[in-house]
Design a protein around this nucleic acid. Structure first.
Lengths: 358, 358
DNA sequence: CTGTTAGCGCTTTCAT
DNA sequence: ATGAAAGCGCTAACAG
């Protein structure tokens, strides 16, 4: 097989072949400017015959636009993020923007590398899901980008827009759900990081427990590292140490599932002895074998809105710089229903099983 | 805030500021050629002060290399793929290649768009996880790429290399495990597509059942569309129609979990009445509440090898054009252990819980 | 409606 | 050890 692949068809080749100037070919490719129907057709047939494709690097070099939106997430293995990313992709593709996905694995060096790559490649916009970089460094980095939407981040001068989920309110709902189910000895299980979206939950828990006249002891705020294995181990150890715990709020569904695993391992019945609530409502949580009560985060809506904010900015359209989203309590079997005078309560929400699988 | 962001620092700016030629700056940036220590330091300080970053589009335009490896997968929501992708990313980053991920959602138009994007951007290599495009079209597309590794695809002239999992053997193992557990009325549950990696499983099942002197009736090959909801519904309906089924082989773990859900919904005890086996061994399958017997696919190994094949090709190093990987039976509670004269069998494999979660 | 010219930011000869 | 000039493939501005 001959290796003549190196030299690819350029706009000049097409122009020569069609007896027109490169600019006319360019016009046909991009569908702007006026070109007579006749030349258009001739050029199009040459393009097709030669299999011409514009070199993006060249286009991007001259236009300073890449047609790319970067998405930076902390963890591709947490099913929550792919669910958001799908909505982002669909929305972006509607306007022919391609999505470049970066999973940082919560590592700062990878996060930096992602922004760097996007900057160097002149990404037209970035959507970043709670960046871990310190605010000062982040500000510098964002000032070099064209536009950035931050999700679940405090208001931030250097960002084009912010989308936040009201996790304070979500945490209040979580506490209230457990209290309504008759639980008094709660604990909160979270990562060690003290990032905004994490502390909001804690604030909500503290306020709501105070209001309910119960309080979570300081030693009942459990924290641990990032891997599921870690969380399983810590939950297991803490549950052994604290046999009085009857309600557990976990900072997300994946963590809640690790906690379930720990309960199962210790033969602690859920929800009879310990009730568990998570945040997110990933698909997995709806499986009958998991059936996790959780506060549903509007994942698709977040993705769509984030891209729209970006588009509005590109179009010079004014739009709110900050959007706040609410969560919804999805009552399932990992926590008892509210005890309204011994009454039965509303039926569990239907499971959503709309993910594909190949 | 002043909007003077449009004009970015170029190599010329740096050169002027440092009183050298652009070429010298370039040499310093890339660390090649000779530059006196003194000028190097001066240039480096200017680079830092001005915050200079080379424009990738320009680099790529002149070098015809992008430093990018494209990865095309069918479904980001199937946890199997993120597990492979993580290995790909880690391996690629070791040599400063960035990974661009495309999830096609099993849609041909999105698959085409992904290859197109990678071609237009001069990706230095592509790893494609069983492409769905017809072979003829795929051949054309690949001939325009620099290098492509196909995973789970038949030998393919236009590909740089192929990595295949031996699903024929895996299917044989699955059948044998069920037969050893005393099951005789098996069914196979899969997507409708008749793609290579799918038909291999069927061949294995047919051969192994024949050898065991049982056979799966044609109507016990169940097939259905892509969504989990579809699979749940179809499994549920088929299980109702076929109460004699005592063993179910599912084409992957996600499908197996949908089948479990259907059994649970029908109060069919697993594994007492129906045993279930999947393929892949995603993290989820190891949860005690799922505990799915499955044939473990070496996900990390696939990712690493795929990138290495790409690197070998770039380096002009000879390497095998085809690698075949084996699966390993992970015995868990969704299927009974082998009945060796009523003997108990080897203990279940340990659960791996090494995923991060944020 | 179409072509010419110049230049995007970088690297690669080839000199010096 | 460093620089000058040319050009990668494309498009914007300006002619015609």
């Amino acid at each position: 097989m001959v290796r003549r692949n190196q030299t690819r068809v350029t706009i000049i080749d097409v122009a020569r072949e069609a007896n027109v100037s490169p600019k006319t070919v360019s016009r046909v490719m991009r569908g702007d400017g006026y070109v007579s129907e006749q030349t258009r057709q001739k050029i199009q047939s040459v393009i097709k015959r030669l299999g011409y494709r514009p070199n993006r690097a060249a286009q991007s070099l001259v236009s300073d636009r890449s047609g790319v939106i970067g998405v930076v997430i902390p963890d591709i293995n947490n099913p929550f993020f792919p669910e958001v990313v799908r909505a982002i992709e669909d929305t972006a593709l509607e306007r022919d923007y391609n999505v470049l996905l970066f999973s940082t694995e919560a590592r700062l060096d990878r996060e930096r590398a992602a922004y760097q790559f996007l900057e160097d490649n002149r990404a037209d916009g970035i959507i970043s899901y709670f960046p871990f970089l310190p605010d000062s460094e982040l500000a510098t980095i964002l000032s070099r980008q064209k536009a950035t939407i931050l999700v679940d981040h405090v208001p931030f001068e250097a960002a084009t827009g912010i989308i936040r989920v009201d996790f304070y309110d979500a945490a209040v709902q979580a506490v209230n759900a457990l209290v309504a189910a008759g639980r008094r000895n709660l604990c909160y299980f979270s990562p060690t990081e003290s990032y905004y979206t994490f502390t909001e939950r804690i604030r909500g828990i503290e306020d709501a427990t105070a209001l309910a006249n119960i309080s979570i002891l300081p030693e009942h705020f459990w924290a641990c590292g990032g891997s599921i294995e870690d969380r399983f181990q810590v939950a297991r150890a803490k549950l052994l140490e604290n046999p009085d715990i009857d309600g557990m709020i976990c900072f997300n569904d994946v963590t809640a599932i690790a906690a379930m695993e720990a309960c199962d391992d210790l033969h602690i019945p859920i929800p009879e002895q310990v009730a568990i609530i998570g945040f997110d409502d990933i698909q997995l949580s709806g499986l009958s074998r998991i059936s996790l009560t959780t506060l549903r985060v509007p994942k698709a809506e977040i993705g769509v809105k984030a891209v729209q904010m970006l588009f509005d900015h590109m179009d010079g359209v004014d739009s709110p710089r900050e959007i706040i989203m609410k969560t919804e309590l999805i009552q399932r079997r990992s926590s008892p229903p509210p005890q309204v005078g011994g009454q039965a309560m509303s039926p569990p929400k239907p499971v959503r099983r709309d993910i594909r699988s190949i």
